[in-house]
Amino acid sequence: MVDPLRLGRMLADNTLRHGYPLPVDPQVITGWAAEAGLPQPRPGRPVVFTGALYQLTPYIEALVELVGRFRDPRIPSLGLRLASSLPWSSELLLTLLETPEVARGVRRAWGILGSIARLLREAGMRPAYAWEADLYSGIMLYDLGMDEEFAQQAQRVHKLLRERGVEKVITLDPHTTHALRDLYPRYVDGYGLEVQSYLEVIDPSLISTKGEAGEVTIHDPCLYARKAGVVEQPRRILAARGLRIREPQMSGVNTYCCGGPIEGLAPRLSRRIAETRLSQLERASKTIVTLCPICNANLRAAAGGRGDLRILDLAELVGNA
């Protein structure tokens, strides 16, 4: 029993106050870039923009798990009501979520982001990173119909990037790509960023062929496949590393959603959809490649720790060669 307006209000308040939908330490979001040795923005260099989605996904998973623990749905509803009305309750919620498991999830996200940075370098690019500008894109606010708050966040992110001389942005997940490329121009006057996903800027012919041999299947995220036209690029990168791809039932532009976009609002419905998608994927291969942290989390939750399945982000599979 979740009220999307209350959920949206909590996410919006935090996003507009802290830059992220939960009041996390900015180091959680940006720490990976220092480890990856990315420099501050410089003229002519593209800037990697995470939109915080990979780093925040472990918190979202923990929140969904926490809500699911209560048999009586009125309890999380009450919690959400408190969180949307008391200024410190988001901090309290964050304290509940900051478990060792979440810390491991953040560490894994950092590893994925570092692997993407290595892939970009391997393909001859010299990406930079704008520490203070890598805020949440606000995409959940848009999805929930909170247009005024989404517009404020879009304008803020755009201003921070432009103040740092950024012209080209490399995004790392489909939701942030959609927000910055398709939606921000509608909400920001004089929008002046060129936005591409890392999968679009990497030339697979420059990727080394050394890697993990074997057979995998791929789960196309809806926004990449149907909005951005990103279908062949990840397949070419996987093939460059020597991996054979077995297409699942419903792939490419006809992909089937993982259920992730409603995991917070309707967790049981979301889980059923994830289970359906997982069964389609595992019939093709027991190694499933994802391109989005939300898809990865939702499919892993549906797999429930099954040892015969590997559900890996593309960068985990090919980024460490």
Binding site: D143, C222, V253, N254, P261, I262, L265
Partner: peptide, 12 residues
């Protein structure tokens, strides 16, 4: 209305 995934499969 709020359980739509906005996945766009129907659009096609």
């Amino acid at each position: 209305l709020y359980t739509c995934l906005l996945c766009g499969a129907c659009d096609l």
